[in-house]
Design a protein around this nucleic acid. Sequence first.
DNA 1: CTGAAAGCGCTTACAG
DNA 2: CTGAAAGCGCTTACAG
Lengths: 341, 341
Amino acid sequence: MSTSPRKSRSSGRVTLDDVALSAGVSRITASRALRGERSVGADLVTRVTLAANALGYVPDPAARALASARSHTVVVLVPLLSNNLFVDLLEAVHRVLHPLGYQILIGVTHYQPHEEEELLASYLAHRPAGLLVTGFDRTPRCQALIVQSGVPCVHLMETSRDPSVHCVGFSQADAGRAMTQHLLGTGRRRIAFAAAQLDPRVMQRLEGYRRSLKESGCHDAALEWLSPEPSSMALGAQLLESGMAAHPDVDAIFFCNDDLAQGGLLAALRLGIQVPQRLAIAGFNDLAGSDQMWPPLTTVRTPRVEIGESAAAMLLQLMRGESVEPSSVDVGWQLVLRQST
Amino acid sequence: MSTSPRKSRSSGRVTLDDVALSAGVSRITASRALRGERSVGADLVTRVTLAANALGYVPDPAARALASARSHTVVVLVPLLSNNLFVDLLEAVHRVLHPLGYQILIGVTHYQPHEEEELLASYLAHRPAGLLVTGFDRTPRCQALIVQSGVPCVHLMETSRDPSVHCVGFSQADAGRAMTQHLLGTGRRRIAFAAAQLDPRVMQRLEGYRRSLKESGCHDAALEWLSPEPSSMALGAQLLESGMAAHPDVDAIFFCNDDLAQGGLLAALRLGIQVPQRLAIAGFNDLAGSDQMWPPLTTVRTPRVEIGESAAAMLLQLMRGESVEPSSVDVGWQLVLRQST
DNA sequence: CTGAAAGCGCTTACAG
DNA sequence: CTGAAAGCGCTTACAG
């Protein structure tokens, strides 16, 4: 049982031929044994596996992808890495898919449709086994790329009634509405909505806020404080400061994301504005640190771990060619009432 | 000039042959033209480029990697994505490498040596063009994998005097020492060091802290509050609370990371401990929000954007086969004195 | 259950 | 400056 390569290769790489030779089988049998195809004798499987381990064989993903026209890569497209929300999502996806031999290829779109297009085009060239993308808002060309590729795709963070798309998320609008109702329920009437980035999901939360306030006759467009800039604690502070200066009668601010809300909370502290007595402050997402604020921040807990896990599981089914029912999964959300409201 | 494929392929994919046929050149010439090899006539280059664009040709990375025995992938190994430090690093690396046609493959090690080993083994199979790893602390097997692979590698975050390794970073110990000196300089004598995770770089900061306090005769091992748990605001609060309960005379806490320090700051607020009058609080890294704290947090600004950019630039040279001088780049750090000390 | 042939889509020498 | 041949390391039908 020689362990020397059949013929000297330029690269020192251990190939399938080396394993096959060492195990005394053909290359194809070695390939099948290693991939766990059932049509191989049990004794051969162990012999091949042993040989592969002894030689330190690692299959070449490029060769594999080229020959089989598919890879074990799952592409995940998220807007940002600087929002922990998406990091949690990625970790959850990784936790499900990695043990099954999938590699996660992370693409960051920065909320830029053209960046998403470019990433998608270049990643699709890798023949990914599956695709996970954030939300539904993308260019027609992006949409077309996904559909034409034929790569199974699950959409994250939102839900849909279109049975032809697969998604795991929750109703951003409902959550936005519920938080506003909560503020109304505690007697607030001058409720501002302070938002940054203004991505589709933020706008859906705004929609929920609007609906709620219009229903109760409290809506005032002047209290929608919208900034297209990236979300940050500093921006939250700024929005609170300028907003309160222009509208001193505001008695609650619903920030579209916790980092804004945390910044707002600290700005209130700095400015000597009593929270929640004088001003209620609410956030969204229940990010790290929101429970550590003083006062602790009321917010909406969004189940991104569950989204990541469910989406990965759904993608797994699709990649196996199974049909998935239902195609849209709503994992819900949860009001977390702390002391800032 | 027909645009139909030379022969029907099972995959609908547009291949180099299609482009070559459409441009009326051989496949090799098309390949060379597209890759910008200079040995191709200018007119042919434009003809090929036009044909490629018209057909929507995207090179197959798998075929490319297999044929050339190398890819345009750069693997970056970071401990965590939940620390913004590493996100900043990744963004900077991406900003330099992406425009040059490199894909960034992110690996998250969770500070686990065996996870790093596994990631490295599987990523190395992709024949990456380059490797970026965090720090120097890894298993011998990991080390060996890197060296044997022959893939150019740059180490992030730390510096080294070993001329055979390439790295971009700064002296964590010096920075730790400088912050401690600052605290001593403002009259503090009972200075605690509160740390989490206890990764190599945290321990280097601790070392700097120790050196400084020993020199001034103020060192007290009981004031080293070390927790192996992951860093978080909640843990920072906990460390402050338990530490101050056990050692009420402590007049300064140097947290090894800003999230801990932010948590500590908020805990002090909650407990009614005056900062900085009664207790000085310092952090490390100058993470998002530290300038928004109340009082704003004194910390050490670590130039991760510069580290990412310089490391990417250095890796680029190595990937081109150029030698790099010096092999260790110290980008320094900066004391940021705010109102918490 | 096992194997010989062909091919995935490129690029690397080697010629001219 | 351009091209025909060979091959990268696998897997997919197709046979037996």
